[in-house]
Write a protein that binds this DNA or RNA. Structure first.
Lengths: 212, 212
DNA sequence: ACCTGAACACCGTTCAAGT
DNA sequence: ACCTGAACACCGTTCAAGT
């Protein structure tokens, strides 16, 4: 077991990432990945037991691109750095990033990515038994926002919203009708992300201060 | 165009949902769906232009199972009802629910599901131009939490966490090491969801009161 | 330790044809 | 309007074989 060429494995994962970003996750077949690195598809099974396992490793590959925060910075800056780094990775790999939310991650890379968050929350004064819960809140917001953004769930720059709204019975959509054109205003996604983040940090500070 | 048997369409979507829940999303092939409703796979293309479009409709099918809140209830209760209804749907369809976060939803059902949230936020006193942003925060939390729960991202009841932690260099995971056994405590997911929800509602109330 | 070729049981989708 | 059968170009994966 185990004595397999690690560099080659990284090379394969990078190829998979490249293919997914160029043609979408559906284009990322074992055959396509193999061709990209100059191998038969069957050769990949020497590095990954199945395509499913390859996808697990791909989660780790994406997580590696979220740089760990500077440990000398104050805890709010460390939280912000993790959050912004994760969102930046989502923008860099918009077609692949959603795997982070879809797969039950049990990789070393996942634990390694969480550790700085635990550290920052403890430094904020959060009681130990509540650190994991706050980390879940924080990462759920960050990943949920980032995935919604790149998957288009938030609407693609609100194009076409108006038309779609109007082809529905207005009596069925009273709130949309009351809001009207306000819904077509452009959105500053950076600002919205930062505002949510700031609120979370403020809540963490408050809970931390209460027990300091 | 358009004059197609709607009941049959619903029947097909229910069959698709059934198959995905029994065997996972990967088992939901056009062939399997066809067989489940007693049709050739090709017959499905009379109802959906492609499997991708069928998946879009499936999002609507799942959203239909989130009951609209009682419009006579106070706005916080309406928000809570929507959130709990969505999470309940996630628990009912754990293997299918993640499609809600992965697909750019442009269906009437999606707009219909959002309308009660817009209404509640306006009744809370949120300025009109900030209603959509608050709705995104709220639904991101609800969907993100629910998807993380059913996809296993939060850890499967924390089983095996300890072992996984220990096979990593403890010097690389200082925060995990400091927290130690606290990380193995059981989690009350209902309570954690409700706590996050309560915080959101409190924040909404605060912003609404500031401009009332 | 690493890779290949042929083969198996599947996919989504098109197209011509049937009622 | 609705459905079928045959066919095309793909899948992931196994297995025996090669170096």
């Amino acid at each position: 077991m185990g004595k397999i060429n690690q560099e080659r494995r990284e090379e394969i994962l990078s190829a998979a990432l490249r293919i997914a970003e160029n043609g979408g996750l559906a284009a990322m077949s074992m055959r396509a990945i193999g061709a990209e690195v100059g191998l038969t598809p069957m050769a990949l099974y020497g590095y990954f037991a199945s395509k499913d396992e390859l996808l697990d490793w791909l989660v780790g590959r994406v997580l590696q691109e979220v740089p760990p925060p500077d440990p000398r910075a104050h805890w709010p800056e460390r939280l912000l750095a993790c959050a912004r780094g994760a969102r930046a990775a989502a923008h860099r790999y918009p077609r692949t990033f959603s795997v982070l939310l879809n797969r039950p991650v049990v990789l070393p890379e996942a634990i390694r990515a969480v550790d700085p968050l635990y550290g920052a929350l403890m430094d904020a004064g959060i009681p130990h038994e509540r650190v994991a819960g706050w980390e879940r809140m924080f990462s759920t917001f960050v990943l949920g926002f980032a995935v919604s953004e790149v998957s288009g769930r938030f609407g693609e720059g609100n194009l076409g919203t108006r038309e779609r709204r109007e082809c529905l019975d207005p009596g069925e959509l009273p709130a949309h009708h009351r809001l009207g054109e306000v819904l077509d205003l452009p959105v500053d996604w950076d600002a919205e992300f930062e505002e949510g983040l700031a609120r979370l940090v403020a809540m963490i500070e408050e809970e931390g201060a209460g027990t300091a």
